[in-house]
Amino acid sequence: MKNITYVQAINEALAEELERDEKVFIIGESIQQGAFGVTAGLVKRFGTDRIMDTPISETAIAGAAVGSAMTGYRPVADFMFADFMYIAFDEILSKAAKWRFMHEGTQSIPAVFMAAMGGYLGLGAEHSQAPVSYYMHTPGIKIAIPSTPYDAKGLMKTAIRDNNAVVFLYHKALLGLAGQIPEEEYLVPLGKADIKRQGDDVTLVATGIQVHYALTVADQLKDKINIEVIDPRSLEPLDIDTIIKSVEKTGRAIVVDEDISRCGVACEIAMQIVERAFDFLDAPVQRIAAKNYPIPPGAMERFVLPQVDQIAAAVKAVMG
């Protein structure tokens, strides 16, 4: 095992896949230098033909990724901030997600759309979002959200090798998070949840930085309540079976999600729990998500983004 940070883990995954498959390349604005460090140093090793700097042209970045993916390449398109992906939604949500379907499975789009997501850095409404529900809402595109260095590396490698479009959203407040990973190569599959902490009393479902907030709450309350924390790691495909199995054991479920509450990821997962495990529930399913506002700047963002004390309050509420 070795110690590595979250950002280094993504960097390692990219480097290994670039090394392994000459069809892999990265394209995005200022990625040779990089805004968050995930592509740091890659241009020195792989050259400017494979680590391609672009102008500020999100639709061109996404469209070029889709076009080159359908003609034999495995592009990783970088959008810097996840918020900027909105500019390229026709390319991501309609072309990448639907092209194979529209052509009855005769083509495939092995492209990764990568960006830094999330808040807690006070960066305001257009640089702090966790725009996950749009992707989960759109059939035809997969979504990976790592919460640890181990998952970040393994999920990225899998995303690049997947023969379909995958959105890979890494949390920009986790970049410096350290963790252990194996020295040897490994993959983390899409569609396989990870139980980050075992417990019998309450099931907490969370992704990204929310996993760490859930673990914090689990630790705070450990003397009285045994909390099970499940990180789905990918939202499409979603490992609902692992979640249901946990809820059947605990009888209580809380879904934590950094995206906007209304029509969000938490709604979807909570509804699936209700549909499949209603008879096991001892309390209504709770959701903790961003409130239905744009994310305010600076200190005010705490009024909107999920907070540790809200998760703790929800746990106490379902325990009665």
């Binding site: 639709t59 061109a60 996404a62 469209g63 070029a64 990724a65 889709v66 076009g67 080159s68 993916a69 359908m70 003609t71 034999g72 390449y73 592009p75 390319e91 072309k95």
Partner: peptide, 9 residues
């Protein structure tokens, strides 16, 4: 932009 991708390929 799709054509751009094919041109790149």
């Amino acid at each position: 932009v799709l054509s751009l991708g094919w041109g790149l390929t």
